[in-house]
Amino acid sequence: MSQLIWNGLFTGSFYALVALGYSMVYGIIRLLNFAHGDVYMLGAFIGYYCLTLLSGVTSGLPALLIVLVVAMLATGLAGVGIERLAYRPLRQAPRLAVLITAVGVSFSLEYGVRLIAGADPKVYPVRLDGQPVELLGARLTAEQLVLVAVAFVLMGALHTLVMRTRAGRAMRAIAADPKAAHLSGIEVGQVIARVFFLGSALAGAAGVMAGAYYGRIEFLMGFVIGLKAFTAAVIGGIGNLPGAMLGGLALGLLESFGTGLTGGEWRDVFAFGCLIVFLVARPQGILGEKAVVRM
């Protein structure tokens, strides 16, 4: 039982990190960024190469934390680049055009990484299988605990940034009314770039964590998690940040209990079943209100 909760929290915190970026981007430019899951994959690969480079110098948790920071910076910049190249020129275009572009970006990232890294799965050069300890009946390692803590710190930091700072205020203003944001002197393009940086950096962090947790990465790993993060964002209320965190954790727990009851092959059925239930019964999500509060 507590093992199921623990597993659910662990995967749920990845989902939440990725869902945050999904939700932020949707909140600010109303785009379902289908390439977002691939930024997570990109983070995992950047982490892989950095860890390989570091392997002689340091290893284990310290190496992982350093690499986490590097991967976040790199994926953040990649996110800014993607926005600049692919989405910004389409700011005035119909939304469908941007959506299709996002699918194109997704494929470009997937097959770009495949071109460089190859199609075979890679074994992550660090694993979180230290001495497991018993905690309330669950078996977990100190490294896992640290990573979940890092995930929660990142989410808390993002929440503070969005709710308490000048930059965050500008993000919420654009989400509420982009035209009025322009008229208030907000450099809208710049703020959108920042949102892409933050969202992509969080996805990159989740990618490194997932690599370390599952121990294996490959170029298509972002596809399913992108859909899961979308599901989590919808469950929580898309455009709503606390909702994305809650939705991610809820989805992780649901999957964990679902597979605990019926077996691993049903995992995705649970996740996407939830999506359908929510879309039918409560399309605005747990915390979403009907087009009032965004981000």
Binding site: R169, R172, A173, A175, A176, D177, K179, A180, A181, L183, V292, V293, R294, M295
Partner: peptide, 8 residues
């Protein structure tokens, strides 16, 4: 239409 930032 005023366009205040709702939610803020």
């Amino acid at each position: 239409g005023r366009r205040v930032f709702g939610g803020l």
